[in-house]
Amino acid sequence: MKEKPATVFVVDDDDAVRTSLRLLLKSVGLPVETHASAQEFLDAFDPDRAGCLVLDIRMPGMSGLELQQKLNDLHAIIPIVFITGHGDVPMAVEAMQHGAVDFIQKPFRDQDLIDRINQALEKDRENRAGLRERDAIRRRMEELTPREREVLELVTQGKANKVIAGDLNVSQRTVEIHRARVMEKMGASSLAHLVRMVIEAERVN
């Protein structure tokens, strides 16, 4: 699966900041897209586009914190680097409590911002790889027959074959066969691996 290159989305109400960040990020070869307001970004937001968000914390209209909240409500995984002013401590703390990956305080050195953006992009790559892995597990689970799914459920509850056989009113040998099929279809190398996959599949963003 080939992905489109990751984009750095810049949201800042200050024209001069947007222009200078656009030039800066282009100069280091990062695709960049700027928005003058949180609402404008939200209207164009596509959760399938890889990248990170560079977000001014203080803006008229919808603030950076409000945009973060809205993205969280959408279970968006895009990592956010906030731009803050001196003394924005309470807002920075709140943004951290809600999952911001990083902050940069104005005025900043260009290289510091680029470093933070690169870390955020790396985090986005990891997040998306995790999501793809989860989707793959879910697809494999959907391939299971209803009976195999029952066995999977009971096996991952830690029940022994003998107990499962009793629960399902079948022979122990039948449980062993189903169990082997489940392990094979799921690509599980061990019971622990199978349990980890089930936990991963049940996780929400």
Binding site: T84, H86, D88, V89, P90, A92, Q97, F103
Partner: peptide, 26 residues
């Protein structure tokens, strides 16, 4: 608690797992 309004200090504390980081006058 801190009487110094540096964002970086607040961010470090939150990263380290603090529940909150509160500026002293408030």
């Amino acid at each position: 608690l801190s009487s110094d309004a540096e964002v970086s200090g607040a961010v470090d504390a939150m990263r380290a797992g603090a529940l909150d980081f509160i500026e002293k006058p408030y």
